[in-house]
Amino acid sequence: MSTPDRESTSRPVAIVTGGSRNIGRAIALALGAAGMAVVIVARSDRDAAETVVRELEALGTQATLMLADVAREASADLIVEHALERFGRLDILVNNAAIRREKPVEAMSFAEWREILAICLDGAFLLSRAAIPHLAASPAGAIVNIGGLTAYTGAPNRAHVVAAKAGLDGLTKALAVELAPRGITVNLVSPGRIGTDRSHASAEKNPAHHARNQTLLGREGTPEEVAAMVAYLAGPAARFLTGQTLHVNGGAFLP
């Protein structure tokens, strides 16, 4: 990958993994609307990622993209380096990349189990580890992990997804304790039933658990409602919040 011209900025800079569609796209746009420069990370869909970059630039902010597999250890350093080379700083990391497939556990291969955990959980660990020194140098460093409702309710045919998202909850608490002395907040946003485009291979079109997890409000949420919570946690008003799980689920789950 060629190195882009450096474009140092006084804006806060955020990395958003899985930022090319659905909740990730909405998060990127919400952060951009809040005045942040955004690095969009996508595994393979350059066209979708470039569209989000254009949308961010239309908002008057700076944006760039990087195609990378967050499950690969070498990718984490490259993603962080890309942000620093382009913008000269890093303030926010949003670990959103995930795939949500379904398969009965007795039919699930170890490779299928590992694929989900590698992207959802290993990727968050690797990116956080690479970002920590730079977030600590920020006056408002923050990590926001994106969890999921089934980590708390369980779901059929999703042992790998449930385990990965539950692991993110634990990682959030562990990092919040460890990184608080360095001024980095770490929180998790757990979406419930959100109306998203499920035509991509990374998600099931009709998840089985949707029939069980009805909302009190009688509707699905929107990606923008999840993104609003992420933008809040990434902003100056949330500096006294850390180690928390914020549920955006319309009352489908009451912790």
Rank of each mutant, 00 (worst) to 15 (best):
F125H: 03
L127R: 00
S128A: 05
A131T: 00
P133K: 02
H134T: 00
H134I: 01
H134F: 03
L135H: 02
A137G: 04
S138C: 03
P139F: 01
P139L: 00
P139E: 03
G141F: 02
G141S: 04
G141T: 03
A142R: 05
I143W: 07
I146R: 08
G148K: 03
G148E: 07
G148S: 11
T150G: 04
T150C: 01
A151V: 09
A151W: 06
A151P: 09
A151S: 14
P156H: 07
P156L: 09
N157P: 12
R158K: 15
A159F: 07
A159W: 06
V161C: 13
A164P: 12
K165I: 11
K165E: 10
A166V: 08
G167E: 11
D169T: 15
D169Y: 14
D169E: 14
L171R: 04
T172V: 11
K173A: 06
V177W: 05
E178R: 01
E178L: 00
E178P: 01
E178H: 00
L179R: 01
A180G: 06
P181L: 05
G183Q: 04
T185V: 02
T185K: 02
T185Y: 02
T185M: 01
V186C: 04
N187A: 02
N187P: 01
N187K: 00
L188P: 04
L188A: 06
L188K: 00
P191E: 05
R193H: 08
R193Y: 09
T196G: 06
T196V: 14
T196D: 06
D197C: 14
D197H: 11
D197M: 14
R198I: 15
R198C: 13
R198L: 14
S199H: 07
A201Q: 10
A203E: 13
E204Y: 12
K205T: 12
H209P: 05
H209F: 14
H209E: 11
H210W: 12
H210E: 15
L216Y: 10
L216F: 12
L216D: 13
G221Q: 12
G221K: 14
G221D: 12
P223R: 02
E224D: 10
E224N: 08
V226I: 10
V226W: 03
A227G: 01
A228E: 09
A228W: 06
A228R: 09
A228Q: 09
A228G: 05
M229D: 05
V230P: 07
A231K: 04
Y232C: 07
L233S: 05
L233C: 05
P236R: 11
A237D: 11
A237P: 06
